[in-house]
């Protein structure tokens, strides 16, 4: 299979700052055709030409899945990050032509659920926006528990409060409001599924609490994309392509491979889907495993690496690419 899903040419329709950190971008198909319908929780990969470096960042679609005229994503500016979100915030303007991928869903609703219990932290709200559209159109039962730093920094807080006053519960850090998770999980009817998207700590907390309360793993869903981290530059030898490439400080190994025309399959570009898994043939040094895919054994044995998020420090790394 080729890498990623088919590309779509889009035009930026609007750029709307929502608060100091968060901006919404809306796209239309460039020739005026319909965009593909999608399912709640899906993401697209947005391609950026960041001063010569090609970046491809995944963002959850947050618009109504039934709206095939436009897609929206919401991007939080990360000043420490590698620049993808900075690029979106400072360079992307209405009218610009961009390339995105056909939607992929790695955080799908379980449609057999009797009730959908959603737990969002910060920008983790975005996949729930499209899921809520989907659930309302089929009149399904859902509840959203949303933790924000403050009213001012809670994206879509107003919109959600207006549209779903009965389904929404908000927890504001600056007011010391706290989600009582164990109680919440205990009180759920049989057939409830819980979904969590937010910072890693929050995801771990929800998964552990659910496990302690004897929830089956199959009823607990989480979206855990890590944006690739910057780090020190390093070199990698590619066994099949028979060359050595270097990975920049602000580049991921996957991006470096793509920049030298080596095709690697991917879907999430965030260490979660497993598509980019690559065999390590020689490793004299340490792999910085930043993924959520490999098992502990695989990590310790240094036989696999996930190039979309993981890095290397040491003398020599040879991979099967």
């Amino acid at each position: 299979m080729t890498a990623g899903t088919p590309k779509i040419n889009v035009t930026v329709e609007s750029v709307t700052p929502l608060n100091a950190l968060i901006t919404r971008f809306t796209f239309r198909e460039s020739c005026g055709k319909d965009l593909p319908a999608f399912s709640g929780g899906a993401h697209v990969v947005v391609e950026m030409d960041d001063h010569g470096t090609k970046r491809m960042n995944p963002y959850s679609l947050m618009s109504d899945p039934n709206d095939t005229k436009r897609y929206s994503i919401t991007v939080r500016r990360d000043d420490e990050g590698r620049g993808g979100s900075l690029y979106m915030h400072s360079h992307v303007k209405a009218g610009m032509e961009m390339v995105i991928s056909t939607p992929v869903n790695l955080f799908s609703l379980d449609l057999t659920a009797k009730k959908h219990l959603m737990i969002a932290g910060g920008i983790g709200i975005t996949p729930f926006m499209s899921q809520i559209h989907q659930l309302t159109s089929t009149r399904a039962h859902f509840e959203l528990h949303y933790s924000v730093r403050s009213d001012a920094l809670g994206a879509y807080l107003q919109e959600l409060t207006q549209s779903y006053p009965k389904n929404l519960h908000v927890y504001r850090d600056d007011q010391d409001e706290q989600l009582k998770l164990a109680e919440l999980l205990n009180g759920q009817p049989v057939g409830t599924h819980v979904y969590v998207c937010g910072p890693k700590g929050m995801i771990d907390w929800v998964r552990e609490t659910a496990r302690e309360a004897d929830w089956p793993d199959s009823s607990v869903h989480f979206e855990e994309f890590t944006a690739p981290k910057s780090g020190n530059a390093f070199e990698v030898t590619l066994h099949q392509s028979n060359k050595t490439i270097s990975v920049d400080r602000h580049q991921s190994l996957l991006e470096a491979l793509e920049a030298s025309s080596v095709e690697v399959p991917y879907l999430c570009r965030g260490g979660a889907c497993g598509q980019c898994e690559t065999n390590v043939l020689e490793c004299d040094g340490n792999i910085e495993h930043n993924d959520h895919w490999l098992t502990d054994d695989q990590r310790l044995s240094k036989t696999k690496i996930m190039p979309c998020v993981s890095r290397f420090a040491g003398k020599k790394l040879t991979i099967e690419r």
Partner: peptide
Amino acid sequence: LLNIQQGT
């Protein structure tokens, strides 16, 4: 099959 995506 699990990895078949929209459009492919």
